[in-house]
Computed example of a mutant assay.
Amino acid sequence: MTQGIVLLAHGSRDDRWREPIEAVAERVCKNEPNARVACAYMELATPDLPTATAALIAGGATAVRVVPLFLGMGKHAREDLPHQLEALRQRWPDIGFSLARIVGEEPELVDLLARIAVK
Score class of each variant (00 low, 15 high):
7 L>R: 06
105 E>W: 05
15 D>I: 15
22 E>N: 14
76 H>D: 06
112 L>R: 12
18 R>H: 12
82 P>Y: 02
82 P>I: 08
79 E>R: 10
23 A>T: 15
97 F>N: 03
13 R>N: 13
68 P>N: 11
56 L>R: 02
91 R>I: 05
3 Q>T: 15
47 P>F: 02
40 A>V: 07
118 V>D: 08
17 W>V: 11
25 A>Y: 01
52 A>Q: 02
42 M>W: 04
33 P>I: 12
104 G>A: 06
47 P>H: 10
19 E>F: 13
10 H>D: 08
80 D>H: 00
63 A>K: 03
62 T>W: 04
101 R>H: 12
15 D>Y: 15
27 R>L: 08
91 R>A: 09
4 G>S: 11
45 A>Y: 00
49 L>P: 01
46 T>L: 14
23 A>K: 14
45 A>C: 12
33 P>E: 09
7 L>T: 08
90 Q>Y: 00
54 A>C: 10
28 V>Q: 07
60 G>E: 02
95 I>H: 00
24 V>R: 09
78 R>A: 11
38 A>K: 06
24 V>W: 02
104 G>K: 03
66 V>G: 00
81 L>K: 01
80 D>L: 03
118 V>W: 04
35 A>H: 03
42 M>R: 08
43 E>W: 05
12 S>V: 13
56 L>V: 07
45 A>F: 03
54 A>T: 12
88 L>P: 00
29 C>P: 06
103 V>Q: 00
5 I>R: 09
30 K>W: 12
82 P>S: 08
12 S>E: 11
55 A>E: 12
10 H>C: 10
59 G>R: 10
70 F>D: 04
24 V>C: 08
31 N>Q: 15
88 L>H: 00
86 E>P: 01
109 L>P: 00
33 P>C: 07
48 D>Q: 13
64 V>E: 01
39 C>S: 07
4 G>C: 11
56 L>H: 02
74 G>S: 07
47 P>Q: 10
114 A>K: 13
116 I>G: 07
11 G>R: 11
114 A>H: 13
9 A>F: 04
21 I>H: 03
99 L>Y: 00
80 D>S: 04
27 R>T: 13
25 A>K: 05
31 N>W: 15
82 P>M: 05
19 E>G: 13
35 A>M: 03
18 R>M: 11
60 G>R: 07
3 Q>H: 14
34 N>C: 12
108 E>A: 12
95 I>T: 00
38 A>V: 06
42 M>F: 06
22 E>Q: 14
113 L>K: 09
32 E>V: 15
17 W>F: 12
75 K>C: 14
2 T>H: 09
75 K>T: 15
113 L>W: 01
43 E>T: 13
